[in-house]
Amino acid sequence: MKKPAPRETILSLFSQTPNGFVSGAQISTELGISRTAVWKHIRNLRQAGYNIEAIPSRGYQLIQSPDILMPEAIQAGLECRVIGSRVCCLDATDSTNLQACRFGDDGEAEGLVVVADQQSSGKGRMGRRWESPAEVNLYASILLRPAILPFDAPQLTFLSAVAVCRAIMSSTGLQARVKWPNDVLLNGRKVAGLLNEMSAETDRVNYVVLGIGVNLNMRKDQFPEALRYPATSLAIAKGHPVSRLDFTRSLLQEIDALYQAFLEQGSEPVFEAWQQLCDMTGKAVRVDCNDLLIEGVMAGLADDGALLVRTATGKMERVYAGDVRPA
């Protein structure tokens, strides 16, 4: 087990204290450092935007945490077995997926989370861009090394979609829905886009990167004029901003729990949860598969996650890649 950073320990002491007060002596004992060193860490936290008050004879009190994504704040008291074992937060990057893939190529252990405040070339399908302005949203990529066959890896796509819906529910109470394979919708508008990458040999997965973009506090004027699919953010849907930090922590915990279930029980629990979150089953859909347009009724998921569409002629089509929208 890696020893947590002093900052992380201090933040988790605050989160574990019911009345909110942590004495300097307590921190000093916990970290095995001098009172002067404690004071320096508190000063650094204040400089990072933490509002910490010092009340004589009672100790330090954390009044407010800044809504910035920092490894210590994300990891403090995080209830995860694998995800978030290492967290890398970047101010700006090309794409968190690219960064996570580089870590993967360099042999980084699974569970790594790469988060960026903004992306200059966030990835979408077919070379499309994922709009990634600074300070408002979550752009994250998670590195996994499951001992599964490459053939089964695409099933992980459904895992992150379910996790995002659950994190939205726990941080806002809003019921998000999924659209095949892994778009997340709020009131029929896209709120999250997920894109995964895999490095594999014939018979083994080197790594999988789950790329997750969630529109948290993006304002209406920050969306590009021409979007392929109508979009929204949690703040627009909820009417007030949400904490990026709380959302991120909740998301990582949901992914961790689903990933454990996936490793132990296979894709069934994930598929079941996904189907319950999908309200397009039984409805008319149009699927744009590059040059081919498939129209019919969504019949559900095949056992490998393919989209089943029954066309007017009664034929059952299996779709592995395409853009789905309600007809």
Binding site: N196, M198, E201, G305
Partner: peptide, 13 residues
Amino acid sequence: VEAMKMFNEIEAE
């Protein structure tokens, strides 16, 4: 090769 928004870059072995 893409399956369900999982992109697999196939490399020469």
